[in-house]
Design a binder for these strands. Structure first.
Lengths: 193, 193
DNA sequence: CGCACACTTGACTGACCGGTCAACTCGCCG
DNA sequence: CGGCGAGTTGACCGGTCAGTCAAGTGTGCG
């Protein structure tokens, strides 16, 4: 069962450093040291591999999103998780390569509806988790008036995606993502963590 | 000179409804009713066409970003411009198809450095223009403390990109972009427009 | 008239695409 | 021992990809 794992991990790397469409099955197989027939023994299609890659990243994110501390701290913990993941990518690949979900969402949501829905599901769960923290913060009176927890969660997720995209296209360091994200949360939460 | 224009406009439509990589030169030529040889008479490569498409959208955005009114109004005018463009796309294509710049940035900035730089330039000019409005708002005392005009401009641009991406992947209506963007600006500016 | 040149045409190239397949290896289980 | 099935292999498929090219067409200008 390690072959399948090798394929998924190689694919995750290649999809990040290049893109889904620019990487062929042959590239994938070379990178994972696997022959084409073996690839298709584990995955019915390239799109199914992409789903597996999404699930891999989703698991990784889930693991880093362990929630504890005060409501405000829980919000900043999300920023920290994103920071860790993005600086990790920056170290491995030498530059900001984008969000694993956002990249695939932007590239494929118009051409592959199944994959679009799959990524949308990951985003929905992420946003729901954020909304929980926002609701807790609101109950603790840590939020300014006029913004509901649900819209704040949506705004934070959008900010994460936007900051990562801008850093990726401009070649900015991952630290810029961290700074922008913390600034954004700070303006919406009363106490700093 | 109308042939070239027809190619660029058809390409703009196809790149939005599908994606850059999923559209072949043959598709482009069919859509523009042009033969392949003619295409290569006007564009040395597919990537050069993409640059022309970016410039077309950039001109369109520039035109809708005409600045007047109070500093706070100028910020909300950016939100309105984005709204108009995105709802226009939604009417034409039946769904949110993403930001013309963000889509290409996400898809190609890892594989085509020239195109990446081209799109980054558009973003930089857009952000500079936003920063102008933010600085004017700061001078008028309309901004809360603790956030510099430059970082606010960056945050707004990131919010635009993130909201559009999330709407695109989740199949949400363009109105959600408008709402989120206005909410974000409202929390950072004292007076509403 | 005749040339020059912007533009058009459609056939063509070679590489690469995602995906298929029959044959093979090998360890486990009856 | 027999054989079954998970996993592997490399040759192979039709189609599509971006890009090329030689031969046109039509228009304006000297």
């Amino acid at each position: 069962m390690q072959t399948r794992d090798r394929i998924v991990r190689s694919a995750a790397r290649l999809f990040l450093t290049r893109s889904y469409q620019s990487v062929g099955i042959a590239d994938l197989c070379t990178a994972a040291d696997v022959r084409k027939g073996s690839f298709y023994h584990f995955f019915p299609s390239k799109a199914d591999l992409a789903k597996a890659v999404v699930d891999l990243h989703a698991g990784e994110l889930e693991r880093r999103l362990a929630a504890d501390g005060s409501p405000a701290e829980r919000l900043f913990a999300v920023a920290d998780a994103v920071t860790q993941i993005q600086t990790g990518f920056e170290k491995r690949f030498g530059r900001v390569v984008g969000c694993p979900f956002g990249n695939l969402a932007a590239e494929l949501s118009t051409t592959d509806d199944e994959l679009r829905a799959h990524v949308a599901g990951v985003f929905a769960r992420w946003e729901a988790r954020l909304a929980d923290a926002c609701r807790a913060a609101a109950d603790a009176g840590a939020l300014h008036d006029g913004v509901t927890p649900a819209t704040l969660a949506h705004m934070i997720l959008a900010q994460i995606q936007g900051l990562i995209l801008l850093a990726k296209v401009s070649g900015a360091p991952a630290a810029e993502i961290t700074a922008g994200l913390r600034a954004m949360i700070t303006t919406n939460v009363r106490e700093a963590a």
